[in-house]
Design a protein around this nucleic acid. Structure first.
Length: 420
RNA sequence: CGGGGUAUAGCGCAGUUUGGUAGCGCGCUUGCAUGGGGUGUAAGAGGUCGUCGGUUCAACUCCGGCUACCCCGACCA
């Protein structure tokens, strides 16, 4: 992408009221703009990151045999009355009447929709177990949206639902999702923990939350110094730092996290209400067991920034950066040689499969460096007459203090190595 | 929903006390110079001062209602 043909609207100052780091940086980098309280518009730069997160989530869902579907946000009251949540969900459920005066809502989650569909689609034990997911907009009419993208009223979520003949099958699929989530957050390049958690308004028995670890997180976690043990302190309200870990390994210490994923064993609480049955091998109808599995896709973008930033701006993990490489020319508008070298490199790197940002603006070097650092591009190449004379390209990683010189004809292999 | 705050150019702010119909910085446009860390210079464009009403010869400024947004809390993914 050439910056001269792109919408790169960076700002030096944070808009008033943006207190959270990720909120400030997303605004300053030109990733998002506010439309109303808890409602955000995604600019091209921000959407690139969102799409990369979606892509990783989609890959791992597909890898465990979960099937992608798409359900509507606008839903009739009937299914919510059937589950009982029309009245119990609370004011977060945004209700309205359509032109025919029918009670309608914007869906905050999709247990009702999927269960009402699958009771018709699934008829036999032979079809089980099976799981479906979607990546779609959810609406929750939050009392107080806050912290930019971290708590919004409208957000992108990956929600998945599994169907089973029995609890043992549910447990097996739950474990598969647990493993898939671990892979996803590892691939995203984030430091995270899976925590035992409360099931909240979704209901069900067993549940785990996946948290991105950062001091700015809303949730307080107790983790073991010696093992993977981690729990939301709401489940262990009397715990103190230094107490023995409940799993017997090490002692507890406190940390904070941003919840970016939550998996539940729902059991039959929804399938029972919707009378979602299949026939067993013996020809008898049996209520299906269900699991549900959520990931806050848009929240991950903000959580990643909370975890990965410095005084100059965002420091993207390589897997979700909007651009892999930025090319910054020195004095290109006076040197045809620099211009040709940049063009050639831009073409070659793009052909090699990299997302390349070529800063072809007629800007001072300082401006281009500052923008590249603010928007967090991991790999920076500086092309100038000096380097061309010596047949080298100046390379710098966003996280490193010093730059290094790479022979011009080795630069593509060098960058490929960074991604292997 | 309770408490606190803000609303003036795209963004950050001053002006309001002491009413006389708007200003600074950044950004944007154009010229010249500069060209390895947000450069300098000159000339420009851009605002019914959140909204409705009141007081007044006159309201960004005073008074009242409303709305929006932000922060803390409770709540929540």
């Amino acid at each position: 992408m050439r910056v001269s043909h792109y919408l790169l609207t960076t700002q030096k100052e944070s808009p008033a009221g943006a207190e959270t780091i990720s909120h400030q940086l997303m605004l300053r980098a030109g990733m998002i703009r506010a439309l109303g309280a808890g409602l955000y518009q995604w600019l091209p730069l921000g959407l690139r990151v969102l799409r990369k997160v979606e892509h990783i989530v989609r890959e791992e869902m597909n890898a465990i045999g979960c099937h992608e579907i798409l359900m509507p946000s606008v839903q009739p009251a009937e299914i919510w009355e059937e589950s009982g949540r029309w009245n119990t969900f609370g004011p977060e459920l945004l209700k309205f009447k359509d032109r025919h005066e029918r009670d309608t809502c914007l869906a905050p989650t999709h247990e009702e929709a999927i269960t009402s569909m699958m009771r018709h689609e699934l008829n036999s034990y032979k079809q089980l177990p099976i799981a479906f997911y979607q990546i779609q907009t959810k609406f929750r009419d939050e009392m107080r949206p806050r912290a930019g993208i971290l708590r919004t009223r409208e957000f992108i979520m990956k929600d998945a639902y599994s169907f089973h003949l029995d609890i043992q099958s549910l447990q097996e699929t739950y474990d598969k999702f647990y493993a898939a989530y671990t892979k996803i957050f590892t691939k995203l390049g984030l430091t995270f923990r899976a925590a035992r958690a409360d099931t909240g308004s979704i209901g069900g028995s067993v549940s785990h939350e996946f948290h991105v670890i950062t001091p700015s997180g809303e949730d307080k976690l107790a983790i073991s110094t010696e093992s993977d043990f981690c729990t939301n302190v709401e489940l262990l309200p009397d715990a103190k730092e230094g107490d023995a870990s409940p799993d017997g390994k090490g002692t507890l210490k406190f940390t904070r996290g941003i919840e970016v994923g939550h998996i539940f064993q729902l059991g039959d609480i929804y399938s029972k209400k919707f009378n979602a049955t299949v026939l067993t091998e013996a020809g008898q109808p049996v209520i299906m067991q269900m699991g549900c599995y959520g990931i806050g896709v848009s929240r991950i973008v903000a959580a990643a920034i909370e975890q990965c930033n410095d005084e100059k701006g965002i420091v993207w993990p390589q897997s979700i950066t909007p651009f892999d490489i930025v090319i910054i020319p020195m004095n290109m508008h006076k040197s045809e040689r620099v211009q040709h070298a940049c063009e050639k490199l831009y073409q070659e790197l793009t052909q090699a499969g990299f997302d390349v940002l070529f800063d072809d603006r007629k800007e001072r070097p300082g401006v281009m460096f500052a923008d590249a650092e603010l928007i967090g591009i991991p790999h920076r190449l500086v092309i100038g007459d000096k380097g061309l004379d010596a047949n080298i390209v100046e390379y710098k990683h966003r996280q490193k203090a010093e730059s290094e010189e790479i022979a011009s004809d080795e630069i593509i292999d060098f960058l490929k190595k960074q991604y292997s």
